[in-house]
Design a protein around this nucleic acid. Structure first.
Lengths: 157, 157
DNA sequence: CGCGATTGAGTTGTGCACAATTGAATTGCG
DNA sequence: CGCAATTCAATTGTGCACAACTCAATCGCG
């Protein structure tokens, strides 16, 4: 099934526009609110995402952080350097496998968790959605993402 | 209402993680599929969004494009220069208001629309979602975005 | 009319996303 | 064991997002 036979190209084009516009706009609106909330903490939104996984797991190799956040080393390496320069994490090569770099929280990085405590509550309030709707949104987003990842799109028609 | 009294901080933090992870991941998965589909056309995803509004309206001032896509001149100016260098658009100062720059499709830019015709259909197929779910997703995303834009978040608690 | 405020585009600087490549460490196969 | 293939992080280069700023054109109020 690739043609959705009942729909005209024009309709599809409009729906596509609406969906990709909406997703883009939502992602950037989200980022904008986080930017303001995180300014006090001195974190950007992607840096906050990295800190969230570290607060959860304490210490992780770069590889694992990348798997959790779907980010590659090209994004993570400079980001982690900035977190290290800010004194929030340490990076050291694993003695077991010299290829791997383990990222661990410093005491300052752990302490930041307290100050970040209010962020989720304020953000969820800003969304203005009831909890059930948020769960539904998350469910749909995850289904879309899974389908996108599974779809090995062919470059040329 | 800012405190959602029934929920513990821990739960909120987890929900926040899930929602922002999901939104981020979906946005990037979407971008990844578009990247592949658009490679033949020589367009990036944000360039495609600009072309979509131009295909719809023919010609627009930079200001209007920015309003449609929620992008500022800092993003649009270099992007439009690249589209102009690719021969897809013309940019010229409006005679009525010399501050304004009107962006118009070239014949090549208009012609590209034909080649882009299959993109939405292939993308919608890749999402793997029924049309109703996509409409629901779009609705939720728009509600979140509207709420985010309305919420004038205070920098410091 | 004159001048200060506003508007629109562009520039600069920082940071993220991703492709492609590099280089070192490790793995595994013959 | 020895060497080719793989793995992991880092680097390079392009493009986007956004804040802060510049500068010219326009607007509007007195």
């Amino acid at each position: 099934m690739t043609t959705l036979p009942g729909m005209a190209d024009e309709q599809l084009l409009r729906l596509d526009q609406q969906l990709c516009f909406s997703l883009n706009a939502a992602s950037r609106a989200f980022g904008g609110v986080y930017r303001v909330l995180l300014r006090d903490l001195g974190l950007t939104y992607p840096q906050y995402l990295v800190m969230l996984v570290l607060w959860e797991d304490g210490e992780l190799p770069v590889k694992r952080i990348g798997e959790r956040l779907r980010l590659d080393s090209g994004t993570l390496s400079p980001l982690l350097k900035r977190l290290e320069a800010a004194g929030l994490v340490r990076r050291e090569r694993s003695p077991q496998d010299e290829r791997s770099v383990t990222v661990a929280l410093t005491p300052e990085g752990s302490a930041l968790r307290e100050r970040a405590g209010q962020v989720p509550r304020r953000l969820l309030a800003a969304t203005g959605l009831p909890i059930e709707d948020m769960a539904a949104l998350r469910g749909l987003l995850e289904r879309v993402t899974a389908a996108m990842d599974a779809a090995t799109v062919e470059p040329a028609p």
